[in-house]
């Protein structure tokens, strides 16, 4: 893919990633956030955090399908940062709309409520990933260490999915779809690395 096309595509993808926020803002202004606007905002920002995390985790397995898809990697950082962006909004709804900035109450929550603890763990991972997302960080940390650190994306996604399971009521199974998607993405990586090991061994034997 040409550099010019890539830049053009980024100009399309970036605003597209802002659409979920745009919808919320529009609903806010037109008073159509529904009967429980706080829940609407919380759910939308939570879901989009998960979706962006899963999309960014899908990039590697998808690009491995064909050498013509290598350019996809150029979008991974942007998508990952959008996951962090929506997670920040999600956390803000909790801090502001649910807790009314009551630090004591929140400290109590984080210690006592497993789903909040899990959500905070996921956010801490995303924060570390966002903070080290620059080219400067890669140089500073060194490729190997940076790659190791950025495996936290898996931890963040898993924490997000567990966080979702722990907030729904017993008997409700709505989180199963994101769970399956995450499982498939993780499995694809496991299969690929197993194949890779096998290939390397063959190469070694052949040599």
């Amino acid at each position: 893919m040409s550099r010019r096309l890539l830049v053009a595509l980024k100009f399309v993808v970036f605003p597209a990633c802002m659409v979920p926020l745009g919808v919320l803002v529009y609903q806010g202004f037109t008073n159509t956030l529904g009967p429980d606007p706080v829940a609407t905002i919380t759910h939308a920002t939570g879901f989009w955090t998960l979706y962006f995390l899963l999309i960014s985790l899908a990039i590697t397995p998808v690009r491995r399908l064909s050498s013509r898809l290598v350019w996809l990697i150029r979008f991974r950082r942007m998508l990952g940062l959008f996951a962090f962006f929506y997670a920040t909004l999600h956390l803000t709804t909790y801090v502001w709309l649910f807790s009314g900035f009551d630090a004591h109450e929140m400290a109590h929550d984080i210690g006592k409520r497993p789903f909040i603890t899990m959500g905070m763990l996921g956010y801490a991972c995303l924060f570390a990933l966002a903070a080290t997302s620059t080219a400067w960080s890669i140089r500073k940390l060194g490729g190997r260490r940076w790659t190791m650190l950025h495996r936290l994306a898996y931890v963040a996604a898993a924490a997000g999915v567990i966080h979702y399971w722990w907030i729904v009521k017993t008997g409700v199974r709505t989180p199963w779809k994101v769970t399956v998607v995450l499982a498939v993405l993780l499995l694809a990586r496991a299969v690929w690395s197993a194949k890779e090991t096998l290939r390397k061994r063959k190469v070694a034997v052949a040599a």
Binding site: G28, N31, L33, P35, D36, P37, V38, I41, L97
Partner: peptide, 9 residues
């Protein structure tokens, strides 16, 4: 329910 989100609490 029905209150604006910034003063629903």
């Amino acid at each position: 329910i029905g209150a604006p989100f910034w003063k629903a609490r």
